[in-house]
Design a protein around this nucleic acid. Structure first.
Length: 290
DNA sequence: ACGCCCGCCTGTAAGC
DNA sequence: TGCTTACAGGCGGGCG
């Protein structure tokens, strides 16, 4: 912990959610839901009642685990989908038995017939769970998430197409990267890391990029996120982000800009600065990013 | 169409 | 030392 400087907080973004998705694959696919306990109704606020949420899950078997941006998608055997959003501080915890003590702020508990539980823990309660009913013919799998843009790791595209998308907006680059309707899964932390890797300022207009800059940005976006997934995500000083088994990620040590105010740029040794943009902290190297 | 606010929350730390 | 205030931010909504 550094002296005299506020610590930024790590929130789950695409790499952290993807890490949890991969862990869930081996842990809950094929398991049947015996019981659901909702301990904080705010967690299931899209449903008319906690009972309604429970009824849509109990007796169902989990058949697949997907991800769309920062949302986890647990496919159910009736065609429905349990959607999990971790918000700012949400965690999923795998418990071997109901007897394991519950962490504070455990808002929902899913028990499986074969034993074991999946627990949703979320101090700030920005996260949520909801069940999306089986879609009608021709409907998207989860209509509630139809507004999300492309997924940077799942939906590969040519840089030329990315250029067309960028040019169709006249927004600051960081605001656009964080716009979930444009591209899904990038939050404040990875936006700063991607822009550092691309050598571009947060306030460059998306329509102002040269073809070389577009290629650099696309490559930086994909490679930064893929490398963070390899390292199982980022856990900052507060260690808010934990994986399914309570372990921290490894990517925070690779950060070039985010949460490095006052430290030397790893590329040019000038000082990383923090500015406010849209009410949020933005970290950058004013020498490397133009 | 875009930037920028607010409100929702709690834990942490800075300020007095 | 202890209380109060500010800050962190994902997301939806409102406003200019």
């Amino acid at each position: 912990m550094r002296w005299g400087m506020r610590e930024a907080e790590g929130m789950p973004e695409l790499p952290e959610v993807e890490t949890i998705r991969r862990d869930l694959q081996g842990e809950v696919v094929g398991r049947k839901i015996k019981a659901v306990e909702v301990r904080n109704g705010r967690t299931v606020r899209r449903h008319p009642s906690a009972k309604h949420f429970r009824a849509r899950l109990e007796g169902r078997t989990v058949t697949s685990i997907g991800r769309s941006g920062k949302y986890l998608l647990l496919g159910l055997d009736d065609g429905g989908t349990l959607v999990v959003h971790l918000g700012m501080s949400g965690q999923l915890q795998r418990a071997k038995s109901a007897k394991e003590p519950k962490a504070p702020h455990t808002h929902a508990v899913i028990s499986f017939t074969q034993g074991g539980q999946l627990r949703f823990v979320d101090p700030r309660t920005f996260g949520e769970l909801f069940v999306s009913a089986a879609p009608a013919e021709g409907e998207p799998a989860v209509p509630e998430l139809a507004h999300l843009g492309f997924d940077p790791l799942e939906d590969v595209m040519s840089w030329e197409k990315f250029w067309v998308l960028l040019a169709s907006h006249k927004a600051g680059l960081k605001a656009l990267l964080m716009d979930q309707e444009f591209v899904a899964g990038i939050g404040n932390m990875y936006a700063d890391e991607i822009l550092f890797a691309a050598g571009l300022r947060y306030d460059r207009l998306s329509s102002s990029l040269s073809s070389q800059e577009v290629r650099r940005l696309y490559r930086a976006m994909v490679e930064t996120l893929a490398e963070a997934v390899k390292r199982r995500g980022s856990s900052l000083a507060d260690e808010q982000y934990r994986d399914l088994f309570g372990e921290v990620g490894d990517y925070q040590g690779q950060h070039q800009a985010y949460d490095r105010e006052g430290q030397a740029c790893r590329r040019c040794r000038s000082t990383i600065v923090r500015v406010k943009s849209g009410g949020r902290s933005t970290y950058l190297c004013e020498h490397c990013q133009v």
